[in-house]
Design a protein around this nucleic acid. Sequence first.
DNA 1: ACCTCCCCGTGACACCTGTCATCGCGCCGC
DNA 2: GCGGCGCGATGACAGGTGTCACGGGGAGGT
Lengths: 201, 201
Amino acid sequence: MIRLLLADDQALVRGALAALLDLETDLEVVAQVGRGDEVVEAARASDAEVCLLDIEMPGLTGIDAAEALRRELPGVRSLIVTTFGRPGYVRRAIEAGASGFVVKDTPARQLADAVRRVHSGLRVIDPDLAAESLIDGPSPLTGRERELLTYALDGSPVASIAARVHLSEGTVRNHLSAAIGKTGATTRSEAARIAHERGWL
Amino acid sequence: MIRLLLADDQALVRGALAALLDLETDLEVVAQVGRGDEVVEAARASDAEVCLLDIEMPGLTGIDAAEALRRELPGVRSLIVTTFGRPGYVRRAIEAGASGFVVKDTPARQLADAVRRVHSGLRVIDPDLAAESLIDGPSPLTGRERELLTYALDGSPVASIAARVHLSEGTVRNHLSAAIGKTGATTRSEAARIAHERGWL
DNA sequence: ACCTCCCCGTGACACCTGTCATCGCGCCGC
DNA sequence: GCGGCGCGATGACAGGTGTCACGGGGAGGT
């Protein structure tokens, strides 16, 4: 009997996944949480063996939760199950110690298998995503560029970004100009969108 | 026995919802599709009574699918089940003839109840969303403004938008300026983001 | 020590953008 | 018929934006 923890902020999806996995005779959902910062505690309390983690969650990212799990409960394995197959996510998930990475596009019947493989110590990574994350490599953005791009995501003017980070307007424009060059964009908001799609933020 | 059709582009979620709903003794999932433009055909072939429709799907929006269902198979009721509780979505869903609107945040056990109510002819609408969609009213955007905002969503410069719709650069700027005023934004990409969040696109 | 890279800043320049006033056209509704 | 409104367009202007050249400082590697 493999003991599972589910973490997804959408209650309906969480409950549905639980129903799906409980149909398998060798799997048992022993905990469900809706926030990333409740994962470690719930995993400890429920004595889970494998944690299915969504990435976009309040409190803590699924990737950060995987890292916390590796640190606090090294015996527990994590499997990232997410909507977005952003190449950068795969890389960061693996670096965070996750044992698997599947997108929510995969057929339902393959999920249980993925769980079993992860439980037995194997790595499960969506092959298309693995290839994609290899070809465009790691993020070329520096720390500042990444930060400023996240602030540019909503289309704020440079002046308000500069105020938020306590920097000169010129400096902000310089960093963003560099980011625009690295993403192949022509506008800061286009650059922000591209970086976001690739999981660089 | 209530006959259900599930439409969601994420295979895992679709399968999981099927598992969840099949646990109910009075419900039966008789069809599953991953595209909006396959809904009507599948509903007819499977003789479904209630259709659970996600909004964001390839081919056809869940809202448009609901409209097509009302036109082609008036006896079939639709229940929108979506990730995003954008106020404008609720309004458009109701106008398209949908009988219900729930977000994927709702507890799993309430979904089956929502299905039963819709099947019995009642309307099921998330109360918070209903209130929200009343207070900020219908979209104030004109057709052109809406179209240009969708092109502005990715942060394209005005010049490329103008080229795509075969309009003068000045005209595009005028329309976008109007949209910026109506959304309370200060930048076209901020306006695009706001309009998108409210379901005006 | 030297080089490289990231960070922060300034100044200047060309270009893009948002706003406004003003025009003409066509389509409704009253 | 006349006003209102959406649509397309032009011109002009202030201010925002992207780019480049050039500084200086600090951390890390050889």
